[in-house]
C-alpha cells in the first residue's frame, strides 16, 4: 500500500504526539520524585558566575494553552520592568504584547492569541545594524540594549522584523512602587524585552513566564536549549514547535506550538 501525503503526516503526527506525551509524563514523574509532589519552581541554572555560551536561553509558547483575554504575562512584565503608560498607542512602550491572529480572507475564521516579545535571535538584525554595539548578544544568547551607550538613532527599530523595540519618546518620572531591582528610563533611547535578565542572573525565570504559570494557563515555558534534558529542548525536539518568519534566517529563540 502506498502512503499518500496525508497518511504520512497523520502517522508522523501520532508518533510525535506519542513521544511528546511520553516525555511530558517522564518530566512529571521527575518533578514529582524530586520535589515531593509540589509543582517545582523551575530554577534557571546558569553555568558559572557570568553569562556563558554553555547556556542558550529560550522559550517555547504553546498557543493552544494561551487563554483568550488573559494578559497575565503583559501585566507581570509591566510591573517587573517598570514599563510606563503614555496613553498614546503610537508612543506606548511594549516589551511584550498579545497578538490576535486569524486566517486572511476566510469569513468567520477562528481568532487566536499569542504573546510576542523580543525573540532573542541567534542572528539579531538589530545588533548587526547598531552603530555602537549598544544592542548586542550576550554569550548566553540574550539580546540586550545597553542603555548607557545607546545613541537613540533607531536604526534597530527599522531592522527588527518582529517590532520588538520601542523608543522612549517622553520623559518618565520614577515613582514610588517601582520595582527597584530594575532601573527606570530616560527618554531618547531604545528598549525592549531582555528576558528579565536580572532574574535569569539570579536564577529565576522571566516574570511573564512565572505569571503565565501562576495566574495564566501555563502556556509559556522558559529554559536552556543547550541542556538536552530541559523542558524547552524536549518540547522543541518532540513537537512541531515553530519560529516566526523562519524565512528571514534570524533564528529566533522563541518557539511557538500550535500555529
Amino acid at each position: 500500500m502506498a502512503l499518500d501525503r496525508r497518511d504520512f503526516l497523520t502517522i508522523g503526527g501520532l508518533i510525535a504526539a506519542g513521544t511528546a506525551l511520553g516525555s511530558v509524563g517522564s518530566a512529571f514523574s521527575h518533578t514529582a520524585s524530586g520535589h515531593e509532589g509540589h509543582e517545582a519552581e523551575p530554577a534557571v541554572k546558569r553555568t558559572g558566575d557570568r553569562a556563558s555560551s554553555k547556556n542558550k536561553w529560550g522559550m517555547v509558547i504553546d498557543i493552544e494553552k494561551c487563554g483568550e483575554g488573559c494578559d497575565a504575562c503583559v501585566r507581570a512584565c509591566r510591573k517587573e520592568n517598570n514599563v510606563p503608560h503614555f496613553d498614546d498607542p503610537k508612543l506606548d512602550i511594549h516589551w511584550i504584547r498579545k497578538i490576535t491572529f486569524k486566517q486572511k480572507g476566510v469569513p468567520g475564521a477562528e481568532e487566536r492569541q499569542m504573546p510576542a516579545m523580543c525573540f532573542h535571535c541567534e542572528h539579531p538584525p538589530c545588533a548587526h545594524v547598531c552603530p555602537v554595539a549598544a544592542t548586542f548578544k550576550r554569550a548566553d544568547g540574550i539580546v540586550l540594549v545597553d542603555k548607557h551607550r545607546c545613541i537613540g538613532c533607531r536604526y534597530c527599530m527599522i531592522a527588527c522584523p518582529y517590532k520588538a523595540r520601542s523608543f522612549v519618546s517622553m520623559h518618565v518620572e520614577p515613582k514610588p512602587g517601582d520595582n527597584r531591582d530594575v532601573p527606570v528610563r530616560m527618554h531618547g533611547v531604545v528598549e525592549k524585552c531582555n528576558f528579565c535578565v536580572h532574574r535569569i542572573d539570579s536564577g529565576e525565570e522571566p516574570a511573564c513566564v512565572e505569571s503565565c504559570r501562576k495566574e495564566g494557563n501555563g502556556a509559556m515555558v522558559f529554559g536552556d536549549f543547550n541542556d538536552r534534558a530541559s523542558k524547552v529542548s524536549e518540547m522543541v525536539r518532540t513537537s512541531r514547535a515553530r519560529r516566526i518568519r523562519p524565512d528571514l534566517g534570524c533564528d529566533p529563540q522563541v518557539f511557538y506550538m500550535g500555529i
Partner: peptide, 12 residues
Amino acid sequence: VREKAVREGVRS
C-alpha cells in the same frame, strides 16, 4: 563594574 554586569552578566 557596569560594563561587566551589562555585557558579561557578572553580578557581584
